[in-house]
Design a protein around this nucleic acid. Sequence first.
DNA 1: CTGAAAGCGCTAACAA
DNA 2: TTGTTAGCGCTTTCAG
Lengths: 357, 357
Amino acid sequence: MEQASGDDPAEPGRSRPSEGGRRARRVTSIDVARRAGVSASAVSRAFTEGAYISRELKARVMAAARELDYEPNPLARGLITRRSGMVALLMDELSNPFYPEALQAFGSELHRRGKRVMLFAPAPGEPLEDVLPQALRYSVDGIVVASAHVTSALAEAARKAAAPVVLFNRMLEHGGLSAVTCDNHAAAELVARLLAEAGHRRPAFVAGLETASTSIHRERGFAAGLHQAGLGAPRRVSGGYTYQGGYAAALELCRGGETPDAIFVANDIMALGVVDALRRELGLDVPGDVSVVGFDDIPAASWPSYDLTTMRQPLRAMVSETVQLLEDQLESAYPKATTVTLPGRLIRRGSARLPPA
Amino acid sequence: MEQASGDDPAEPGRSRPSEGGRRARRVTSIDVARRAGVSASAVSRAFTEGAYISRELKARVMAAARELDYEPNPLARGLITRRSGMVALLMDELSNPFYPEALQAFGSELHRRGKRVMLFAPAPGEPLEDVLPQALRYSVDGIVVASAHVTSALAEAARKAAAPVVLFNRMLEHGGLSAVTCDNHAAAELVARLLAEAGHRRPAFVAGLETASTSIHRERGFAAGLHQAGLGAPRRVSGGYTYQGGYAAALELCRGGETPDAIFVANDIMALGVVDALRRELGLDVPGDVSVVGFDDIPAASWPSYDLTTMRQPLRAMVSETVQLLEDQLESAYPKATTVTLPGRLIRRGSARLPPA
DNA sequence: CTGAAAGCGCTAACAA
DNA sequence: TTGTTAGCGCTTTCAG
């Protein structure tokens, strides 16, 4: 196996097989060490933030490294430091445009910190708990869970995990897990008050997944706001956080003529379905007959066909808080669960009659 | 900082700090070996497909492994086999819903084959070539490039790469790279013929990115089809593969009253922009005044607000072909570049007047 | 501050 | 078939 293996002896146009093939030997820290006339440890130190190494030695190593185009192998490094430089992302709702956006944001944010995204996108139905051990096998530096299907089983697995876990855009009441969310309650409350103030009297709510904390908190906040305004509890239907679900939910809400005059929808992708059902199927005018308010502010919300009034989530901030939490937990030996809550921002567009700002 | 920081000295329910913390020692192949009364190599062989090991020894190892909840560390394994079990995915257009769908599909397909997705989602403007070496540092088993910004520089980097590279949904004429695409030319040709057959006489084309192979081939195919039908070259505008670009493109095409009677749009997300501009801004009827045909069949294409007639790409098939190509190249020592082309399928909806199927 | 030596967890020759 | 011995590429005590 010393000779370049498995190649034509006289392959044309490829003078040195071991060079042209895919078997090119990688340059290692030892190569760099030799070139710089130092030990391998010196190379290691040069590439380790805050290691004890003199300016000049470091400079010499770096020069050699640059010449050889060397960068440390994160996997080999991870074997010993137990940090691979990868962060696992658990997302199972990629069909909701909010998540691809988040994904992109995580990508940038982690890249900036010299880390990589390992994506776990289990098909619907695959149990999430199974995914955690999978991620752990890769010695990930942290795990971000952005799935509505966070159960206490997952929480338990997460607490035992050898890597910090942070929930993104959801939380678990007593799970003992760190989480980053928007202030769903306050945001929904505001929507309710504004809707009431604008004169709506027959409000309705379209929930997402019944077990999702986001949906629950938005519903509670909405109900609270209505209550403050002297209105009763809204009618409510579930839409499963999908476009089709929202569409069906709107039909359901309007069945039997009890048409609501305002619908607050737990997320935008459902809200688009609601608007389509209202207009296309029921011939209603939005916002003339019914006001619709969504949540998230996905790109499609601003398209002229929808022009959706919605509560924007501070995506970038949520992402960077999440990553920060991960790093904090990685530092501390016995981190405590922290919940970060960021304010939402109402984006006024044309799908709802609201009092002037 | 030696003492467990920031926690109650007498925290209840956590008797042995070193047990409750995140420092739990991982179980290794040696633990399993000891338990099964065998050597570490035996454990390795038990977990290696097709290794020389007796039925009973394997059974014994597996039993011990199960008891200890052991699974081999893919990173350590990768250090020596040079296969990490990870496949890098290069995607920079996550805002086009086609790609999140593809991402999900890659996730499932790779998961089925025991591999993981490492996602590289460079922000717009970040050079793609830089990403390849990044991926290679992680000893990925392959790299899927699904970016419209494939340049010959990238191709060169890819050819030198220590891992197979396959282009997804794009190709490079003379780049020597394997690729999987839909038959863009034939699909576009068909659209042109049908549009002509239905009596359209002022066709237009909205291109995506000018350098993207998909856009180029769709444009050529469209022109060819029109030509066959005795029509001249279509007017054309570029939309940069974004919703906003499509919107602007439609306005541009209709400026000065030369309104086309049919617009073929290089992808769906632009087509939605085209439809919105036509209807909302120009007050035109789709398909009454203008027929619109898209490409991809993203979920939003079927929403009632758009009801977009479009050429569907065989997403799942494209994904599994891509992964297969990767594996093939991984096997062979000197693989040759292969291009797989799959047929598209026309999805007839309400945005275009077409002859009956 | 620097180098030598040991070893992260695993697989791949090599003998037995 | 199985165990023993190296060693993947790197970091980290430990001496100096």
